[in-house]
């Protein structure tokens, strides 16, 4: 029994280190003075930390603007994805109707056509639709990518709230809309917020579509890829960029940690 416990704890420890050490290393690298990064022999732990590397990254042309672009696109994506997916989710959760199963299947099938497949034909179409190199265009593609997830998550949130509660409200004189707004929505808010945050991460992290669909109005990942491929940006820029990219994701994953299982658990079905 104790041997088993020992086994469990050592395995947990090794796996934790496997996940955590790279995160720690990029964080150190992001605050290591530039010349130390290129030194040989290379010290593992710098004698002093500096904000200089991060400052260099943030002052790099376009970084600040593309960060704002990324946030704007992510927020727009959340709005669009919810406006489109939430009503469908409600219908899927609450009504039995003809075509319900096919719709559900279609939404799941969209997971098979990810960014790579969508972006290139859409780039051609966007030029015609005057959406090429616009943040709206990127947000629309991110919306398309997040709709399967948002639909499945929000549907399961609504399914988790007993329909009898809404019916009770209706027998007490509410209209269907009132019953939704006063009973279901308040109870669904935490789950919806988690879905929203998840959508934010999805958009914030998306590289391929953003790279293909923009030229001057880059999101942050697109800008970094561009700087690395096109301009061969220096190492310290890359490390600082990597760190900067993961910070919001870490905070956000921490915020929704309670929902991680439900979020992914339900996307299974």
């Amino acid at each position: 029994m104790t041997l088993r416990r020992l086994g469990i704890y050592s395995a947990a420890l090794v796996i934790s280190a496997w996940v955590a050490v790279p995160l720690l290393l990029i964080s150190i690298a992001a605050f290591t003075p530039r010349d130390v990064l290129y030194q040989w022999p290379r010290p593992l732990w710098p004698e002093q930390f500096t904000l200089e590397t991060m400052r260099f990254f943030l002052r790099f042309t376009g970084v600040w603007q593309s960060t704002l672009n990324s946030v704007f696109v992510a927020v727009l994506t959340i709005g669009l994805a919810f406006a489109i997916a939430a009503p469908a989710s409600y219908a899927l959760a609450r009504f039995r109707f003809r075509g319900r199963d096919s719709l559900q299947l279609a939404i799941l099938a969209t997971k098979m056509f990810p960014a790579t497949v969508l972006s290139i034909p859409l780039a051609v179409a966007f030029i015609r639709w005057h959406l090429y190199d616009t943040l709206l265009g990127v947000a629309l593609v991110h919306t398309a990518l997040s709709i399967p997830f948002v639909t499945v998550i929000v549907t399961s949130v609504f399914v988790g709230i007993s329909y009898e509660l809404e019916e009770a409200a209706m027998t007490l004189g509410s209209s269907r809309a009132q019953a939704f707004l006063r009973v279901t929505l308040p109870m669904a808010l935490p789950g919806l917020a988690a879905a929203g945050i998840f959508t934010f991460v999805l958009s914030w992290n998306e590289v391929f579509a953003a790279t293909i669909l923009t030229l001057n109005h880059r999101t942050l990942p697109a800008l970094i890829v561009d700087s690395v491929i096109g301009a061969g940006a220096p190492l310290h820029f890359r490390f600082a960029g990597g760190f900067f990219m993961i910070v919001p994701a870490l905070i956000i994953i921490f915020l929704i940690r309670r929902y991680l299982l439900t979020l992914w658990g339900v996307t299974v079905r």
Binding site: S162, A169, V183
Partner: peptide
């Protein structure tokens, strides 16, 4: 008529007491 306009009240099996 809608449920709320029938002059009825209902007790549900699950009680359907609003948890919030």
């Amino acid at each position: 008529l809608a449920p709320g306009k029938r002059g009825i009240a209902m007790v549900f099996q699950s009680y359907a007491v609003f948890p919030h």
